[in-house]
Amino acid sequence: MHWKTRQRLVTWALGTLTIGFLLYQWLPILTLAVLSFSGPTGGTTFPMNGVSLHWYRELWAASFIGDFKPPLWRSFLLALACSGVTCVLSVASAQAMRARFAGHNAFFFLLLLGLMAPGLLVGFGFALLARLLGMEPAWNTTAFIVHVSWTLPFGFLTMLAVFNRFDVKLEEAALTLGANRFVAFRRITLPIVLPGVIGAALFGFSLSYDEFARSMFTTGPDNTLPLAVLAQLDQQLTPELYAIGTATTLTSLLVILLTTTVLWLSRRRAAAR
């Protein structure tokens, strides 16, 4: 066989495999979305017995299953708080890394540890610590502390990457022209790295919003959304769960779309300048 034919065969085989995997990855998600619109007599699988918003109404009314609105609200607030803290701390720690202070390597690995350590162990360990300190576990205290230890490393790495490509000459120009360091940071540095900060905020929000392993041990009686879903799943799989899964997935997609649009616009504006 000519080698070109063979190359083409390899390309086709790899392409088929890739497309096949993408279908494999997407079909369950799409099926979940389709089934969430099944009729009032539809169950957790096909046939759908009609098309309706019945399960979304049931979800909202919370007539059959537990009410998802308070956990949703808690998850939202928690994610928002994590996002804010992640922003501030990741900019501060990335800025600190630029000074190459003694021990900056150890600091880097300390933050990386939060990324590598499995949520199950971190959550369990922190629950023990809280108990030792006499702290009552709750979604807005213990869970918040543990969530940030998960979202911060992602924001930190994002900011490190952004500062790596940052042109120091711009800061130097500002400082030479008489700006003090604080003004130079606020007026020059921060606006330039802003897309990265938005990325860190997005990481913070979505990672905390979807987190359950860490929450499991540290949340206490008032559940967050993923925990409420797990609890309901433990009792019974119902089409309401499909509705909530579809709704959260759509929200995630919307947030991604929004952020990429903002980043794209800011880049275009920067290019136009």
Binding site: Q95, A96, M97, R100, S149, L175, R181
Partner: peptide, 27 residues
């Protein structure tokens, strides 16, 4: 020259909150 000088002691202040957070919540 940049907004944070090399080996500036202020770097420790900036790194401290994150380090303390990770030590408490992970280590």
């Amino acid at each position: 020259m940049s907004t944070i000088p090399l080996r500036s002691p202020r770097a420790y202040l900036l790194a401290l909150p994150a380090a303390a957070w990770m030590l408490t919540a992970v280590v």
